[in-house]
Simulated scan of single mutants.
Amino acid sequence: MQNQECEISGRSIQTSRRTFLKQTSVAMLAGTLSQSKLLSAAETPPGKPEARIKKAVKYQMITEPVSVLDKFKMLKDLGFDGTEIHFRSKVNPKEVRRAIDATGVQVHGFLNSSRDELKDSIDQAKYYGGTSVLVVAGRVDDKNPYDVVYQQQQAKLRKHLPYAEQQGIRLLVENVWNNFLLSPLEMARFIDELESPAAGVYFDVGNVVRFGWPEQWIRILGPRIVKLDIKEYSRKKQVDEGLWKGFQVEITEGDCNWPEIRKALSDIGYTQGWATAEVKGGDRQRLQDISERMDRALDLA
């Protein structure tokens, strides 16, 4: 790791990363490091200098049968600041760029999922003017031992972090149901060991409700959290109907304690990052409902 970083970034950058590691390690214990140390200036979109959480939806959630430009116009009309594009999304990148320029609605990130090759995703995020690539860090099962996955996923990220730094793109690991990084303390350690200011967390609020409390994760992860996925989870539906049925509940109607989540976000200084809905999409009416629910959950109205 150190040799690779020296080749790419030089002694001064290596030193700065060591300093960064020390700062974030202290933050894990004390929770005192401000969000601004990890958020770049690019996180605040042009023309929106005020400090506020920005709303987005995943692009694949927009099912209205209209052009790319009209989809972006609709997002703007409904109060969304941006969207994210998945690597499987069938879109014309040039059309998307024109829609961004015409509406001011941003593509704030690119969704890589669990693919091993991250360079293309970094390039895509850069092309759209985004600031991040969402990464799913492997999966633990009977054929993929926990310790091996831990080492493999850190190696994958370390391979691409220098290039991400050069491009001004963050590689953000999401907490998902992959039997891996099962506590906020371990997730904080995983990120800190990468020793890169380009590494961070894409925190999914609803994904931890099954076995934890989002507000606790938020305070422990602290400034490592760069972006949020917004969804709900119902423990009652989990028990009564099955594990995955817990997600079949609307934002503000599950077991997420939104007042406590908002307080935790405020405590770590998360006031101007992105919050992206990851729920069942639909037409204009459905997206309007999602927008209004996000406003209530995050007190954005």
Rank of each mutant, 00 (worst) to 15 (best):
I261D: 12
E64G: 05
A99E: 07
M294N: 10
Y202R: 05
W177C: 12
P49G: 13
D101V: 05
F203Q: 12
Q154R: 06
V249W: 07
R11F: 07
R88G: 05
E165L: 02
L221F: 00
Y150L: 01
Q2W: 06
L111K: 05
R286G: 09
Y202G: 09
F203E: 13
N179A: 10
V205A: 08
G79K: 07
Q167I: 14
I261G: 11
M28G: 05
T83K: 11
I169L: 05
F110T: 15
E253I: 02
T103P: 07
L185P: 04
I218P: 11
R139P: 10
E43S: 14
D229I: 00
R17P: 00
E95T: 12
E117Y: 09
L39W: 03
D70V: 03
S67A: 05
A301M: 08
Q288K: 08
E260T: 10
K159I: 03
L118W: 02
F211E: 09
G281R: 06
Y128E: 13
T103Y: 09
K55L: 04
G246Y: 05
G282E: 14
E43N: 14
T271H: 03
T103W: 05
S67Q: 10
K58P: 14
I122Q: 06
V226R: 04
L300R: 14
L78S: 13
V208Q: 11
D147T: 06
A275P: 04
A27Q: 02
V239N: 07
L172T: 07
R97Q: 15
K48Q: 14
Q23G: 02
L228V: 04
Q151N: 12
R18N: 04
K119A: 15
R210T: 15
I122C: 03
L265Y: 02
D101F: 02
P65G: 02
L185H: 06
K126F: 13
K22N: 06
R139I: 03
Q166R: 15
I53V: 03
M294V: 04
P145Q: 01
S113I: 00
P197W: 00
K48L: 12
S114D: 08
N175S: 09
E232K: 13
S132Q: 13
S266Q: 05
A155V: 00
Q272N: 14
N112W: 01
R88K: 08
K94G: 15
A198E: 02
K231A: 09
V136G: 01
I191V: 03
T131N: 08
Q272H: 09
I100A: 10
Q23M: 01
E260I: 02
F180N: 09
D289A: 06
G269R: 02
G47D: 12
A102C: 01
E50S: 13
A27H: 03
E250N: 13
S12A: 04
N179V: 07
L118Q: 03
G130A: 07
G282Y: 12
V105W: 07
F180I: 00
H160S: 09
Q106K: 15
V135R: 01
